[in-house]
Design a protein around this nucleic acid. Structure first.
Length: 287
DNA sequence: TTCCAGGGAGTAT
DNA sequence: ATACTCCATGGA
């Protein structure tokens, strides 16, 4: 597939912490999406792929997002512009909402290597095996599979206290035949309120699901790294008492979260989620 | 060994 | 509404 001047940096996009189940072997990235294993690689202005159709690849990697327009919209200061330059071509991937929801419930209070380990364990234990290029891959387990798991099964995958949240949320989705994708049709605030009703889901997890799987580019997830970014570069734009609280590195209350989240959305605008992901990766790569 | 992690829920004010 | 506490595990 010719990219025809469409900026894409596959390496950054797949390793910046928005998706957890892609691996690079040689110059190919291998992953499982759309229910099967596929591989993609980028060769000078061309995106090559196998075991997937072009339409899926285009949608999954968000190639229809106009990165130039997004960059112009969010490039409000020198710091974000530096992040945009450094990691130009990073795109927000359109993940499957179900996998995304479970992934970010698991992601709470964990670092990325540990999250990858949990999701790999879950998939190999409850997913369907599939083979590509002689290597084994596993689809992400369907709601039915996780809803039927025991707490012990999930604990063995390393989920810890998250096991009961994954179990409870899986049961609700499976038993009610809940269609997460239908939340796309709701405006940001309403969709967020609905997602927050699931066990183990608060405002941060909800923002991740909205941004990474439901097309809400205005979502602005605030985690420890983004707190750090705001503290180091945007603190003067906050109310003094919130700035001081951020300085003390104490846990955020829901109202603190709402204020930081609102700052991001108002300052960066309708593509705040893109700004967030560039800033997040930039901050993580600094140390 | 100690600290920290893509936070959220439960409980007491 | 707000503050405080606990949570289960593994990477650095």
């Amino acid at each position: 597939m010719k990219l025809d001047g469409v900026p894409l940096n596959l390496d950054v996009t797949l390793c910046c912490g928005q998706v957890f189940r892609w691996d690079k072997k040689g110059d190919w990235w291998y992953g499982v999406a759309g229910g099967k294993a596929l591989k993609v690689r980028q060769v000078s202005g061309e995106l090559e792929f196998a075991n997937a159709d072009a339409k899926f690849v285009e949608t999954y990697f968000g190639l229809d997002d106009d990165l130039q327009e997004i960059s112009a919209a969010v490039g409000r200061d020198e710091h974000i512009r530096q992040a945009l330059r450094e990691f130009w071509g990073l795109r927000i991937i359109r993940q499957d909402p179900w996998e995304c929801l479970i992934s970010y419930i698991c992601a709470t209070y964990k670092n990325i290597p540990a999250i990858r380990h949990m999701l790999l364990s879950l998939s190999s234990k409850f997913g369907e095996k599939t083979v590509l290029d002689g290597m084994e891959f596993f689809t992400f387990p369907a709601p039915e599979k996780l809803a039927g798991a025991t707490a012990k099964d999930l604990l063995e995958c390393g989920l810890g206290y998250r096991a009961k949240y994954v179990l409870e949320t899986s049961k609700r989705i499976f038993e009610n035949d809940f269609e997460l994708a239908s939340l796309r049709q709701l405006p940001y605030e309403q969709a967020k309120k609905q997602i927050c009703r699931f066990a183990g889901v608060g405002p941060k997890v909800a923002d991740c699901v909205l941004l990474f799987s439901l097309g809400k580019t205005e979502a602005f997830p605030v985690d420890r790294w983004i707190e750090r970014v705001i503290l180091n570069h945007y603190v003067e734009k906050l109310p003094p008492e919130l700035a001081q609280k951020l300085n003390q590195r104490v846990g955020l209350t829901n109202s603190d979260y709402a204020k930081l989240n609102l700052f991001g959305r108002e300052y960066f605008g309708e593509y705040a989620g893109y700004a967030q992901e560039y800033l997040y990766h930039y901050e993580r790569m600094k140390t």
